[in-house]
Amino acid sequence: MKILFALITVLILSLAAFTGVEYLHMEYVFGIVIPYAAFIIFIAGFTAKIFYWAKSPVPFNITTTAGQQKSLKWIKSDHFENPSGSFGVIGRMFMEIFFFRSLFRNTKAGLVKSSKSESFKPGYASDKSLWLGGLMFHWSFLYILIRHLRFFLYPIPSAIVTLEKFDSMFQIGLPIFYLTDAILLLSVTFLFLRRVFIPQVKYISLIADFIPLFLILAIAFSGIMMRYVSRVDVIGVKELVMSLTSFSPALPEKVSSVFYVHFFLVSSLFMYFPFSKLMHMGGVFFSPTRNMTGDSRRIRHVNPWNYSVKVHSYEEYEDEFREAMKGAGLPLDKE
């Protein structure tokens, strides 16, 4: 049900763009108005969400310490798993963001029959599939995104040309097949399949987990379609994109509707982004358990809303137990 709902949503989006352009000739809407709107919604929404988070303070130092603390000099501390300074924090965040350090730890638990009795015990097997799938997906997505800058820039920086060269390293077909396209499709498919086939993950999945998957799948698919199958006039696309970035929007000569479908799906993703779990992109930087140092015993962390509370003072305590304390020979402040 959840899957179907998400699938239909994405199909409707695609069909809307296709019909809009192919039959209603709304190129202006799908090529100019919506992309501009999407971009504005994206950056405004994203920034607003960041500010929304930033409006709340981090009152306490709640680093998760996954390695030895910095204590006695002769004990080797773990700079990255339990950072004692900004160097460690940067390292930790870097490993987390670029290499998914935490997912690398992932294991899979299951029950093992004991050889000696009738009882069972849990067993833990290394499981790097999510790490690998996630890493491949995010890296190829980033790669593709950067590669797309060839439509946005002129002259095209040599770095982007080099990226493209690597991506089309293997001469497969013409135009040459991009490896990242394959990796993206494979990894998104993997992420989808694990959501369907791992019972636990299926059980926790919401519609909002399937929508981005289908949306990205549809974006990749429409992109691949127009590159390899139904060709699109690339120069026309560049003309449109460059006109948008120079704030003098103009529609090019007829460009295939597949392009508009692709463009609209990308716009949809951008619009959806700030209001969805996709904000983990910004949020990962904001996670206090990872972006703080573990040295809160050495340096005092300040809580801006720290307020005084009702305590049971020693005076009250002594008043209450004076006789007993006297009996036990304990020193008293007031005799």
Binding site: K108, G110, V112, K121, G123, Y124, A125, S126
Partner: peptide, 9 residues
């Protein structure tokens, strides 16, 4: 090796 490690079948 994985099953050796975890004891899982």
């Amino acid at each position: 090796l994985k099953s050796e490690q975890s004891g899982l079948k």
